[in-house]
Structure formats: C-alpha cells, structure tokens
Design a protein around this nucleic acid. Structure first.
Lengths: 127, 127
DNA sequence: CTTTCATTTAGACGATTGCGCAAACGATAA
DNA sequence: TTATCGTTTGCGCAATCGTCTAAATGAAAG
C-alpha cells in the first residue's frame, strides 16, 4: 500500500481511499457551499412533482381560486390546498383573500430569479 | 346558482366550480404538454437531493472512482454506487471502466442543455 | 484454478411524500 | 346568534426514497 491509500478520515470506514489529497481538496471545496445545498435541493424538490408543475403552469395564465385549481388538477380541494400552501411557503405563489374565496397567483419574479440563480451557479461550476 | 357554477366534470366531486370555461380552457392548455411534465418532474427530482447535488459538484472538478466519491460524501460505497447509477441512468453522468475500478464523470453538455431547456420552457410561460 | 478487492445488487428498514377523509376554521348571510 | 360554504388543518395510509448490511459480480493477481 502506498501513501495515497488507506488513510481513512471518516465516516466511510474500512474502505480504501485513492487520491487522498484530491478527495480532501474536493471536500473542502464542497464545504464552502454546503450550507446552500439544502435550500437548492428544496428548490428543485418543489419542481420535481407533476401536480406542482401543473399548478405553476395553470397559474401562469392568471389567478385562480382553490376549488378551480382543484378542478384543473382533478384532485380534492384538500390535496390542492396542501400543495398550494407548500408552493406559497417557498415563495413561488402569493394569495389574495376575497370573502370566503382565496385566490392564488404566481410570483414569477421570484421564480425566475431563483431559476436563473441556480442556472448561474451551475454554469459557473460546470464550465 | 348561475351557469358558471356546479357544472362538475370529474373526479373532483360535489365541489363547486367557478369560472367553468376558464378552467376548461386551462385544462386543454395543460393537456397539450401534459406528456412532457413527468419527464420534467423527473429531471428536477434528481436535482432535489443534497447527496446528488454534491456528486455533481464533486465530479465537476474531474472524474472520480466510486470509493473516492463515497469518501467525499461520507456515505457507504453501496449508497454512493446507488446514487451514481441513478444519475447515470438519467444521462447526467458517464462511466469508464479501468480494471477493477470504475470512474464516473459529468456529462455537462446534457446537464446544461437540459437546464437551459427547462429555463426556456418556463420563461416562455411565465413571461 | 483460487484469492483479492472495487463495485454492484438484493433485501430490509426508517423517513418522507402525496393523497383522501373528516373535522376545524373563517367569513358571509339570514 | 346560527347556518352556509370555501378553505385549511390533522390524521392515516400506501407508495417512494435514501440509507444500511450482506451477498453477488467481475476483473486482476498469484
């Protein structure tokens, strides 16, 4: 065994590590932006669902009340409300109260700036 | 009740539908691109996970063997291999065989074109 | 051949997700 | 006040996910 192998840090135990210094360098690089990754993942997670994509596309054509969104989706109002709240909590949607009705609409600026931000971030790292 | 209400299509039953014709129009708009949404969601789903984002960022600095990726992640080799296969199956990574070792690398072109494609798609619809 | 060892696959298990049902909430109308 | 009704919330369930351990590949060395 040479010096680049079998020097284990943790927590991957009893496993050979080739190119130890390269691994260490990459780990320190990742550590710099590791705090951003959970938010970035959440951002993508919210888009990784057909129901939510449909909501975004539907509301791109104008605001809708909850039960009309439900009809567009073909889901119960409860399930629709749940997803709307999720999107609203992450800043993709805004809501407006009108009597008993609640109207949801896109907050496209935030959506677009977020997407462009991720784009830029990845472009920087991937060339 | 007026003509815009209580005309139920399905499967959201016993729920009032306001702006019936608007809902119908949006549904037909969505239907046109509905077949694309599952793929789009899968694309985002794969990015909605910190482990996989770390893998992409790590490999952005050059190819690595599986066990070195595992050390970067701090996960078992098995879990690492599982995520690498997932990314490879979706075309984000390529692999190279060298004896017992397997080296993974980014296929950045596909990654970037995919991201830019989604960007364009959403930009069109959101202004 | 057999052994070794990096990787993959199989199986299990806890955590998370997405949905429906039903109850609670909140605003309007009587 | 009480009744109505759109929406939200709480709970449960089935399905999926992310990880582990252990066994199975597969290639190189002895």
């Amino acid at each position: 065994m040479d010096s680049t192998v079998k020097v284990i840090t943790s927590p991957v135990c009893n496993v050979t590590c080739f190119e130890q210094e390269k691994v260490a360098r990459i780990k320190s690089e990742l550590a710099k932006e590791e705090h951003l990754l959970p938010q970035l993942a959440e951002l993508y997670k919210v888009l990784g669902n057909v129901t939510r994509l449909k909501i975004l596309l539907a509301l791109a054509q104008g605001e809708l009340c909850v039960c009309d969104v439900a009809h567009v989706l073909g889901l119960t109002v409860a399930a629709t409300s749940h997803q709307l709240k999720l999107l609203r909590d992450q800043g993709w949607l805004a809501m407006r109260n009108d009597g008993k009705m609640v109207y949801y609409r896109l907050r496209a600026e935030g959506l677009l700036t977020a997407l462009k931000g991720e784009m830029r971030l990845l472009e920087e790292r991937l060339g």
